[in-house]
Design a protein around this nucleic acid. Structure first.
Lengths: 350, 350
DNA sequence: GTGAAAGCGCTAACAC
DNA sequence: GTGTTAGCGCTTTCAC
């Protein structure tokens, strides 16, 4: 089934040198300068003649590094076990998360390729044997995206022997020391509150999911209550509303709501339409993430924009530094959000 | 830097057996039944005690398989060298191709995970040393997405020793025998022509890019001319128009145009608006791909829908069969398109 | 500048 | 059921 592979040894014997010389010429650039140019040329010719191809698996094995970065995407560590089910694919397909993941992935790819690393997505990186799979030598480091901060996950992270960078999570959530990149949810929510306040809104609620997707959702909620007063909004915890609680949301007690992420806003818009609530005239809605999904909604959704691609690139930068042992104290990088005004917000009509 | 790894040997000596027995118990499920249950239990306990973790790199090396599938995405083989540049990231980011790639990728992931394979994206899969990198043992097979059918690429494909499946390309383009999955462009264009004909359009043009992205664009154009007459449209090759040729497109010679892909339609819509051409009243526009991008356009874009996720899943199915040597004659699977009517088409106003 | 020896961790093939 | 032998292809170490 296999065409028998041409090995270093084959090239060596054809070139009349030892295998190690071939290795130096063909693979190890740092040492190749210590080979006579004539010899090197002979080796290259022999390799060419024989159609030599480096065996990456052998190199990975021998050097104990794969130049590969694994990506763990999902709503908590149970995700990959559900594949085939499949939560993973559902979310990839869904415009909301899939859209934001695409941008983040793009940043990760740019960062990884820049450093000469490949990206791997595996079905068995986690699951029942998470501790094992994460450290089994298939990748040099991991980017963790969008994780729950449960104690079980924290335990897994602590056991992992491979460098990890968290995206959208703080190491403190897991009670461990890991580098992380995160957008400034506090500042982002501040932009939303400021936007609505400047439009003249005074009665603003915060709409979320009963079971938050991850820690960021709570951060955003807290940020709302921490800053609302500073912008002249009189709110208390009763103004944190479940997205299913249409009676409250559409009670006309509010002239605007901020949602914990775009998906919640996308959920509200058709519900509002069904009740004859006009957006933005009767109710302004602000999302969070500002993915392309916002442009698909009618009205298009005003939303806080996360610098997702930047997050992805910096996550890989940190990871590569961590792999190289250049990270003494794991930093937590926070990037400011932007704000995209679209059609779903306007001054209050009443 | 490394915590010294626990090996099979360590587990073996602790359990009082030979390494191969440990291997059978822990890794090779097919053979593990040939181990006494008491022994197996002892081995598992020893592994647990020592915190043994399988070294995947070693297994990959030894077994000459990685259970990994590589994805080559891009407009021709020069793509990855441009990364960092970067065409790859541009297209990932762009709604048009990025959107369709996301769905395809989702299908590939579902298919791969289903078969227990991982997905890898590498910066060096192609480029100057394409022949080498494609066969260097880092993956068991490749999915090629969206390639140009140049002779140079054909040559590279012929030299590749790793199983390949083409997506959106026919093996015949490359004059080689490879399995492929493709959507039925002919049938898809037929749906578009039929839709417009039934609305009453008689003067329909085909708008494309001067330099087609890939072979499919030409297929779609050919399909248009092959089927237009059957639906009562009187067209000739002069009705194939460059997307830059606004004078012709908006000359009111046409009541409708079919575009070679959604991106072209997205390019026309603002141009029409700038000229006071109303869509769909003055000009109906049909796209091709029907990604979420269509929902972002105003008006939303009526478009032929490719079964991208299905394509991705079947591509992997074929690839896995090919890897296992179960594919005697490489098949070409063609999947029918659907059609999504949105706002950009209506009966002609005149 | 070059090479010999050794071994990374695992598993195929075969013997017992 | 279990163990022995051998070696995958490469690179590290150290000697020359």
């Amino acid at each position: 089934m296999f065409a028998l592979a041409v090995t270093l040894r084959d090239v060596a014997s054809r070139a009349g040198v030892s295998p190690i010389v071939v290795s130096r010429v063909l693979h190890n650039k740092a040492l190749s300068i210590r080979v006579a140019e004539a010899t090197a040329e002979r080796v290259r010719k022999a390799a060419q003649d024989l159609g030599y191809v480096k065996n990456v698996a052998a190199v990975n094995f021998r050097t104990r590094q794969t130049l590969t970065i694994g990506i763990l995407h999902g709503l908590g560590f149970d995700m990959p076990t559900a594949v085939g089910g499949s939560r993973y694919s559902e979310f990839m397909l869904e415009g909301i998360i899939g859209g934001s993941f695409r941008i983040l992935l793009n940043g990760i790819i740019i960062g990884a390729f820049h450093h000469g690393y490949s990206i791997i997505l595996c079905p068995k990186l986690l699951g029942q044997t998470a501790e094992e799979a994460m450290s089994d030598g298939r990748c040099d480091g991991l980017v963790l995206y969008n994780t729950d901060h449960t104690e079980a996950n924290a335990e897994i992270l602590r056991k992992c022997t491979v460098p990890i960078v968290l995206v959208h999570s703080r190491a403190s959530y897991f009670d461990c020391k890991l580098p992380s990149v995160i957008c400034d949810n506090h500042q982002g929510i501040g932009l939303a509150v400021e936007h609505l306040a400047k439009l003249g809104h005074r009665r603003v609620g915060f709409v979320k999911e009963a079971r938050p997707l991850n820690a960021e959702m709570s951060e955003r909620e807290d940020a709302f209550f921490a800053q609302a007063h500073a912008f002249g909004l009189n709110v208390d915890r009763s103004d944190s509303i479940d997205r299913q609680d249409f009676d409250t949301i559409f009670s006309r007690r509010y002239t605007a709501v901020i949602t914990s992420h775009d998906g919640v806003a996308g959920f509200l818009i058709p519900a509002a339409e069904a009740r004859g609530i006009r957006i933005p005239e009767d109710l302004s809605i602000v999302g969070f993430d500002s993915t392309s999904y916002c442009n698909e909604l009618r009205p298009t959704l005003t939303s806080v924009r996360q610098p997702l691609q930047v997050l992805g690139e910096h996550a890989v930068d940190l990871l590569v530094q961590s792999i190289r042992g250049e990270l003494t104290d794991p930093p937590q990088l926070t990037f400011p959000c932007g704000f995209d005004v679209r059609e779903s917000t306007s001054p209050p009509a009443h």
